[in-house]
């Protein structure tokens, strides 16, 4: 693979919400939240080394433990923070402006990412629990955003040795909360630093996709923050690092851009609602009445 190509992306995660998740949501709704319809925090530990062979991305597996602040992360697991907004009324769930909601979540990720590029990964769930029928309506979104200035206009495959990729894998293993790293002037792998990458021009990103040569759409978040942090950086090497093999390198060129919108009200395209079992961008329904 050496020719120029368009940079495509896959969905970052595939969610699995098990029965215990809905049982805990029911318990919270009845015993704690009652009519309180505010965001509740969630956390998922991603297992990047045990991805089913047939999967195109890392599973986002939510159980009742997702509601626990400290849910005993295992070695090699990567924590991802999220939140759930459970509506009291089905009609409120239906009427919510879903695109506006996801854009708001993307803006939060963007602002978090400006403070620390590793913090621009999260997920959000909207739900309605019909506790009479034990039927749950829900929709999970992973905010992915791209600013016009971070549009990639030119991408070309670069050679990358297994030895180099293993070095990055080892770094990510040792730095489980990091999504991004760079090379410094001594060619050591170090934490992201906008002053250093402006000189060394090598960015490595932890990837959740398993599709050959196609990174996760979360890459757009990192590239948007990078372009904001280092506006003069137009050409750089992008390493897509996977813990289970399939890492690859790209030479990337950003679009020329003289103007950037305000960081507090950025112009950005947002995507990330998960498709349902029918392949539609629409909510899912789980009927646990028979249980």
């Amino acid at each position: 693979m050496s020719s120029e190509k368009v940079l495509n992306y896959t969905a970052p995660f595939k969610s699995f919400l098990d029965t215990s998740f809905f049982q805990e949501l029911s318990r919270l709704k009845l015993d704690v939240l009652k009519l309180d319809s505010t965001f509740q925090p969630l956390v998922v530990n991603l297992d990047l080394r045990n991805i089913p062979k047939s999967a195109d991305q890392v599973p986002l597996f939510l159980t009742s433990r997702g509601f626990e602040e400290n849910n005993n992360r295992s070695d090699n697991e990567v924590p991802v923070r999220g939140k759930i907004l459970n509506f009291n009324v089905l009609d409120d769930f239906r009427k919510l402006d879903k695109q506006h909601f996801l854009r708001q979540r993307a803006l939060e990720c963007w602002e978090d990412g400006l403070r620390d590029i590793n913090n621009c990964v999260s997920f959000a769930i909207i739900s309605f629990a019909d506790l009479k029928k034990y039927r749950f309506y829900y929709w999970l979104g992973v905010p992915c955003f791209q600013r016009p200035s971070s549009t990639v206009v030119h991408v070309r495959s670069e050679p990358s040795s297994a030895y180099i990729c293993t070095k990055y894998q080892d770094w990510f293993d040792a730095n489980y909360s990091k999504w991004v790293c760079i090379l410094n002037e001594n060619e050591d792998i170090v934490n992201y630093d906008k002053h250093i990458i402006g000189k060394t021009k090598v960015l490595a990103v932890r990837d959740t996709s398993t599709v050959e040569n196609v990174p996760s759409a979360l890459t757009k978040n990192f590239l948007s923050v990078l372009r904001h942090d280092v506006p003069d950086l137009t050409d750089f090497k992008l390493l897509i690092i996977r813990q289970k093999g399939g890492s690859f390198a790209l030479k990337v060129t950003f679009v020329s851009s003289d103007s950037q919108s305000s960081p507090s009200n950025p112009d950005m395209k947002v995507s990330g609602w998960e498709k349902n079992m029918q392949g539609k961008l629409a909510p899912r329904v789980v009927d646990l009445g028979s249980l």
């Binding site: 239906r94 929709w139 395209k269 947002v270 349902n276 629409a282």
Partner: peptide, 21 residues
């Protein structure tokens, strides 16, 4: 309580057509 057919209709009603990818 919604019958199953109405649930399908409700879900279809919420479908987003033009999500950016």
């Amino acid at each position: 309580d919604l019958p199953i057919d109405d649930i399908d209709e409700l879900i279809q009603d919420m479908e987003i057509k033009d999500d950016y990818e």
